[in-house]
Design a protein around this nucleic acid. Sequence first.
DNA 1: GCAAATTTACGCTAATTGACGAACTTTTTC
DNA 2: GAAAAAGTTCGTCAATTAGCGTAAATTTGC
Lengths: 249, 249
Amino acid sequence: MRIDMPVAAQIRQRLARRIAGEISLSDQPGRVMRQWREMFHIPQIQLAESLGVSPSVISDYESGRRQSPGTKTIKRFVETIITLDEHNGGQVVNAFQRLMGVDIPTSIILDIREFNQGVSATALLESIRAQVVAGEEALDREVLGYVVVDTTKALDVLSSNGFLKLFESTGERALILVNASTGRSPLITIKDDFKPSLFVLHGVEKLDYLAIELANRERVPLAVSRMESIEGMLRKLQILGKYAPNEKT
Amino acid sequence: MRIDMPVAAQIRQRLARRIAGEISLSDQPGRVMRQWREMFHIPQIQLAESLGVSPSVISDYESGRRQSPGTKTIKRFVETIITLDEHNGGQVVNAFQRLMGVDIPTSIILDIREFNQGVSATALLESIRAQVVAGEEALDREVLGYVVVDTTKALDVLSSNGFLKLFESTGERALILVNASTGRSPLITIKDDFKPSLFVLHGVEKLDYLAIELANRERVPLAVSRMESIEGMLRKLQILGKYAPNEKT
DNA sequence: GCAAATTTACGCTAATTGACGAACTTTTTC
DNA sequence: GAAAAAGTTCGTCAATTAGCGTAAATTTGC
């Protein structure tokens, strides 16, 4: 009987199939291609270079000038973005591994990444100007990665079970919830066993008292970021990922 | 919070993505298209009609004259075969549901189907001219579907864990193993909890004594089919599926 | 073993892709 | 606030797809 395929190769394959499937089934394949390219933080120029084509080609696809790219194109595209990520430590592919079983729609995830080495919770919070409001006693942790979720969209699209699964799959990582008006609805879903090791809210208008209580009870640090824009926060996280963990920004 | 998507729609979507992904990532997309069309038991002619194109078009794809079909083509193809199956009771889509979590390569599965209503174990065995050799006492069952696996390929491709998962996912169905030279290797993998409710071997040269012992111990009926060809057996099963369960063939 | 059903092979046409490159706009960065 | 980086738009062109239809080949059903 054959030996198991290396786990890494298996994940790679499954993710590749998923991306390829999404592109093929979409009415706007170019849009999906852009989503994934951005998820992988690859500029058009770099992608074009790796593919050996001119940057305008990428733009033409993404903008929809090509409405029905062929399998050859899709295949090259998918394999290239995954390979580029692997050369970079596999930060995105590895982060996706934990979401694979869950079947969470990509659209709610604004960013996701696995650090090459753990980052202290405080360093992460500092970099995105977040203030701790509960669960301080559990702050001496290292987080292994993060997921940024659009809370509004998530509430719209995810079933309560889906939410729970998202939490479970984020264990030992930071879960960053943007557009979290009160922070109540997501925090309510916390359950004993598996949960993120750090919650960050962004876009909070009026923090809910229950959210604070729940975080304290579950001993999860809860923080609120005061960054002006989501984009700014994503940029900070990206930088953190690049230089993790031995530099402070 | 939103209500869950109907389970059926979810499965449909996941299967669609999987098929689309496989096609897009293949070096011979046409070959994969054929595999799936055959898995769904849809003749080219019928598929062509549903797609509103001429049958030669399908053949051209499958034979590889079109080497890189576009997303539009793939999308239409996938959605059409799934819809056709649904109009037919969803026999294939439902059968695949149970394999979805497992990630078993399609190539080892020669046929798969969920009956619209249960079929008695004896009727199934009769239809493919199979003789019971062990576990007779558990023959008064209904089976809800079947999976036909190419044992040689499976041993080649599947890890032992994959084999176990295959068994688990076949619970209450018949597992039909073709190219099963002695029947030993697969039977060894049986574990207590979840297992097929009926084993059928085909292409046995010399049945292994251990296979019989294990089947008796685990109280699973084990039978050996005497059909000449695999194709013949698949045809019989197909007919059984069509007229299940109130007719004897 | 013949008729019917299914699949293949292929020439042909129109539409689209896949690609370039140059000029231009937008976004970052210092 | 200028320079650099990143992304867009679009005219152009060869190669390929997506499609039809017909004749030939193959498979299946009685």
